[in-house]
């Protein structure tokens, strides 16, 4: 009998969801391809970068900055979902918090990988202890801590509760971390001078086309994030339902 419930619910969501899901996904793919075209071909070279390597590497900017934006957005979103979960205690909010962290972690890993590739030709080092780099690393480590915490708890209800608590606490630590690291670096002006070569402001001339491409990429990445969230949350809820049904069958 339970298997019948499983299969009927499965087909129901498929039939209802397929049109919206497919349209949304294809739309996101189209937007991302456009972003790729704009970033790699349409956007002009940054004028004051001299060597070709520097100019090619600068194009990482169009995906590096939006990915970092999505990373922070995902973190903020997961903290919000966690607060709602602790108040309402509904599975879906926990699934959303978890999904947001997982998607955010993917984007942040992209930031952490693309950053050094861009930094090497521009700053001639893979890594500097610039505030932005440091705070991104801390966020990345907090994300990983969140995933590890979830992995180490057996009871699903407790897992959701503890994860929510951790997400809320760590979201409060981000602004304080940011402030402290900023102040830590202003005491060493030499390193700040190297750090201000960062592309997001003042590093190279931002012509209107460069700026427009960046804005488009930020919007594209945000849509991409929402789309990934949509699929990941659906998958997570389905996984939990299968888990419940499996228990039903086993212990009947």
């Amino acid at each position: 009998m339970t298997t019948k419930i499983l299969s009927s619910q499965q087909t129901k969501t498929e039939v209802n969801g397929i049109s919206f899901s497919a349209v949304f996904t294809i739309f996101t793919g189209f937007i991302m391809l456009t972003a790729l075209y704009l970033a790699l071909i349409w956007a002009p070279d940054a004028v004051n970068l001299l060597t070709p390597t520097e100019r090619y590497a600068q194009r990482i900017f169009y995906f590096h900055v939006p990915a970092a934006w999505v990373g922070f957005l995902a973190f903020l979103a997961s903290a919000l979902f966690s607060v709602i979960y602790l108040i309402k205690r509904q599975q879906k909010w926990d699934a959303m918090a978890l999904s947001s962290v997982e998607v955010g972690l993917a984007f942040f890993t992209m930031v952490m990988l693309s950053g050094p590739i861009w930094a090497k030709p521009t700053w001639n080092v893979w890594w500097t202890w610039d505030p932005r780099l440091t705070i991104s690393t801390i966020c990345w480590l907090l994300y990983i801590g969140y995933i590890m915490l979830r992995g180490a708890i057996d009871n699903p209800e407790r897992e959701a509760r503890f994860a929510a608590v951790f997400a809320i606490v760590s979201s409060f630590s981000i602004p304080l971390n940011w402030l402290a690291i900023r102040w830590w670096r202003t005491i060493h002006p030499a390193i700040v001078a190297a750090g201000s070569n960062d592309g997001s402001e003042g590093g190279f001339g931002m012509s209107p086309d460069i700026r427009n491409t960046l804005i488009f990429c930020v919007v594209a990445f945000t849509i991409f994030y929402i789309n990934l969230m949509y699929h990941r949350v659906k998958l997570e809820l389905m996984k939990r339902r299968v888990e419940l049904l499996k228990q039903d069958i086993l212990y009947q």
């Binding site: 801390i138 480590l141 907090l142 801590g145 915490l149 951790f166 606490v169 760590s170 630590s173 304080l176 971390n177 402030l179 402290a180 690291i181």
Partner: peptide, 8 residues
Amino acid sequence: MLFPVIIP
């Protein structure tokens, strides 16, 4: 869990 939070 604790170290990234207490960095400041």
